[in-house]
């Protein structure tokens, strides 16, 4: 079908959308505070794990373990500092 033939179909126009139904529950407000509380708890858990890692690092007597603790600690520090 050439362009001219295709364009004759345009005479029918493009169908319009239906409006969002009035009275629908689409815009019902959700509980917002819970999300913030959960986020705070997760940062708290990250801090707790970081403290555990530092504590184990201080107790360790093997260089290999100390390096491991430090490397594992890096992402927790970056998250707590809100860098990554």
């Amino acid at each position: 079908m050439g362009i001219a033939g295709a364009k004759t179909r345009l005479a029918e126009g493009f169908p319009r959308a239906r409006k969002a139904e009035a009275g629908s529950n689409l815009w019902r407000p959700q509980i917002g505070g819970t999300t913030m509380i959960v986020t705070i708890l997760y940062y708290g858990m990250a801090a707790f794990i970081a403290v555990l890692l530092i504590w184990n690092f201080m107790k360790s007597r093997k260089l290999q373990d100390e390096i491991l603790y430090v490397i594992v600690l890096v992402p927790f520090v970056l998250r707590l500092l809100r860098l990554k």
Partner: peptide, 23 residues
């Protein structure tokens, strides 16, 4: 022991600084 821990901590610090600065 202190030297060893300082070295390991220094390594971690360098990683944090380099990575953190990039991010």
């Amino acid at each position: 022991t202190v030297f060893r821990k300082a070295a390991a901590a220094g390594l971690g610090g360098i990683l944090c600084i380099l990575a953190g600065a990039d991010f």
